[in-house]
């Protein structure tokens, strides 16, 4: 038990050190959603009318609408970036070092997941603080209430990254992750438009959005910002987390894993 905790602290600490040393990564993680918030949302405000829908009780500006989606975006990028770092770790051999630890492998992978979630939450709060400075703020209780939502969403996206890292064999393939995972997940979700707006364009697109676990992660954050729980979204995110995690544990199983294939 004690050994497991020591291991967790060390892995989180190492990931945090690595994150701090990569200032560019932090800067990109914060600037990206801010550009969306300040430039994209400003342009869209005029074009897009939003009706009153839960959890909102009054008309809101588009900037307010996309903040939860941008929080999700930060976590999406962060989760994928940590999967990139896992592929890098594997190419550089430090993954081997990790996997030869006598601590059970599922716990080691969970520690990695926990570390990447913690880092993504730190980024989200930094973004929210800057957004608040530009006048796009929420209630203090809302900021607190999104913490559990961010944890669940971060774990779900981190597990997806872990699953991808067990199947991606080389760093070059990461561009594919960008095209085939990050972009579709983000654009085909409720991050930028509500479901009914999507339905106006196409019912198929609407159905894809409703199926996308990232949509549910975003809705979970959106409701939490107003002190509410979207139970359906929570269930959906937990289900996706369970599926992604089992997939990655399967991928890292020594008896049939990717490491079995000769590198």
């Amino acid at each position: 038990m004690k050994a497991a905790l020591i291991c967790l602290v060390a892995i989180v600490h190492r990931e945090a050190l690595r994150f701090v040393s990569q200032r560019g990564r932090f800067l990109a993680a914060i600037v990206r959603p801010l550009v969306w918030l300040i430039v994209f949302a400003a342009g869209f405000r005029a074009a897009l009318g939003l009706s009153i829908q839960p959890p909102y009780q009054t008309y809101i500006t588009y900037e307010i609408y996309i903040v939860p989606g941008l929080c999700g975006m930060i976590q999406l990028f962060s989760g994928m970036q940590s999967s990139l770092s896992l592929v890098y770790d594997r190419e550089m051999g430090s993954m081997r070092l990790l996997l030869t630890s006598p601590i059970p492998r599922w716990w080691l992978l969970f520690c990695k997941l926990f570390a990447s979630t913690a880092i993504s939450i730190f980024q989200v709060y930094t973004f929210l603080a800057i957004a608040a400075l530009t006048g796009i703020g929420f209630s203090p209780a809302g900021y607190l209430a999104i913490l559990p939502a961010l944890i669940v969403n971060g774990l779900m996206l981190g597990a997806l990254g872990l699953l991808l890292s067990s199947t991606i064999r080389q760093l070059e393939n990461f561009a594919g992750v960008m095209n085939f995972v990050i972009f579709p997940m983000f654009f085909l979700s409720t991050a930028l438009y509500p479901l009914w707006k999507m339905a106006e364009a196409s019912t198929i697109l609407r159905d894809i959005c409703a199926f996308n676990p990232f949509s549910h992660g975003v809705e979970l954050i959106r409701f939490a910002l107003y002190g509410q729980v979207d139970w359906m979204a929570l269930l959906w995110v937990l289900l996706a987390f369970a599926i992604f995690l089992s997939g990655s544990l399967w991928g890292y199983d020594p008896s049939r894993s990717m490491v079995r294939r000769k590198a």
Binding site: K2, A3, A4, I6, C7, V9, A10, I11, H13, R14, L17, S21, M92, G93, S94, R96, L97, L98, S101, P102, I103, L108
Partner: peptide, 27 residues
């Protein structure tokens, strides 16, 4: 000792060893 070096180049020698010790439950 793996064929490929498995050290964190930007961390100190002691930090690297501490990380490894922790992977074995030592602190």
């Amino acid at each position: 000792v793996f064929q490929q070096p498995t050290l964190d180049l930007d961390l100190t020698v002691r930090r690297n060893l501490k990380y490894f010790a922790a992977l074995h439950g030592l602190a």
